[in-house]
């Protein structure tokens, strides 16, 4: 038996089982092909939400920073996608998988670098001054989000901008009698890749070990001789870079980019963090997919309830597990 298995606690079963239980419970309410379409849609949406939320759960969990500006990095990624597509319009419209994927890859890379760099500056200039002061964190990051939205208007204009998917990423494939959008498979795969990367980083590297330890007890990490401020910067940059690529994926999914595209996600991201447990990457991916599934199932079965369904989901989970599905640390 390996360590991971031994560490598996009985209390975790419920948290691990919740996704399959949720998915299977809805099957009798609809045809199989509808179910499959909704389930894939839910997973894809969940994995995009994961990209947007993953950095924030680490920022919260490790540094106890309440930032409402995370959406700004999503928005930045979304608008950069618009600009990249504008520059590479020919490749985007071409009927070639390779050229189309190259456009997407370029947008992701630009967003990754730009959002990460913006995150670095944001941490150095603003967040650094408000560690430990929660009220000031909230005020200054809400302010930051507003300023970022104004900057976006200044750079890209106030009107919503269309962002068509590259040609071969449109349309669906038929699988098990169900129409499955190609883009959703791509988005889910990318999210999974990011999850795998984060998982390896956290569980197989010294820096990851430090992050996991820091989420539990920062003071002790310092007392062991580690300068946590550097760790903070690193996590902030990774978190905002992920938000940027989440913004790219979400923007292509919506095919329309507005200045509030990131800010609009804030509440959903917070719900995911609370459901998953602050500071837990495993909790974050589980909660994100859960929210994606519930949104899609409820949207189909009872469209009028779709809006409130995630909040009801969060309340139900909190009644069951007051500190989220995968609580970390003792604080």
């Amino acid at each position: 038996m390996n360590g991971a298995l031994l560490r598996f606690r009985a209390g975790d079963w419920g948290a691990y089982a919740i996704l399959p239980v949720m998915a299977l419970a809805t099957l009798p309410a609809m045809s199989f092909s509808t179910w499959l379409t909704l389930t894939v849609a839910g997973i894809a949406m969940g994995m995009m939400l994961f990209l947007m939320a993953a950095g924030l759960t680490l920022i919260f969990g490790l540094m106890q920073v309440f930032t409402f500006a995370h959406g700004a990095f999503i928005t930045l990624g979304a608008y950069l996608a618009v600009s990249v597509v504008a520059v590479m319009a020919g490749w985007s419209a071409a009927e070639s998988w390779w050229l189309n994927l190259a456009v997407l890859a370029a947008a992701l890379l630009v967003a990754l670098v730009a959002s990460g760099a913006a995150g670095y500056v944001f941490e150095r200039v603003i967040i650094r001054r408000v560690y430990g002061a929660h009220l000031r964190q909230i005020l200054i990051t809400v302010g930051g989000l507003i300023i970022a939205e104004q900057l976006v208007v200044a750079l890209w204009g106030a009107n919503p901008l269309p962002l068509p998917k590259p040609a071969s990423l449109r349309g669906s494939i038929i699988l098990g009698g169900a129409a499955i959008e190609k883009y959703r498979i791509l988005a889910a795969s990318l999210g999974l890749l990011a999850y795998a990367g984060l998982h390896l980083l956290l569980n197989r590297t010294r820096v990851g070990l430090l992050v996991r330890a820091g989420v539990e007890n920062l003071e002790m990490v310092e007392a062991l001789g580690y300068r946590i401020r550097r760790l903070f910067i690193g996590v902030f940059v990774i978190g905002t870079a992920l938000a940027g690529i989440g913004g790219v994926m979400w923007a292509f999914y919506q095919e329309l980019v507005t200045r509030s595209i990131g800010g609009d996600m804030t509440i959903l991201i917070f719900i995911i963090l609370i459901i998953g447990g602050l500071g837990s990457i495993g909790g974050c991916v589980t909660a994100a997919v859960l929210v994606g599934l519930v949104t899609n199932y409820v949207g189909f079965l009872a469209p009028k309830l779709a809006l409130g369904s995630t909040i009801v989901l969060m309340m139900a989970i909190l009644l069951w597990r007051p500190r989220g599905l995968f609580p970390v640390g003792a604080r």
Partner: peptide, 9 residues
Amino acid sequence: GIFAQLTVR
């Protein structure tokens, strides 16, 4: 100051 979620190792 033990990190409860980390292994002994």
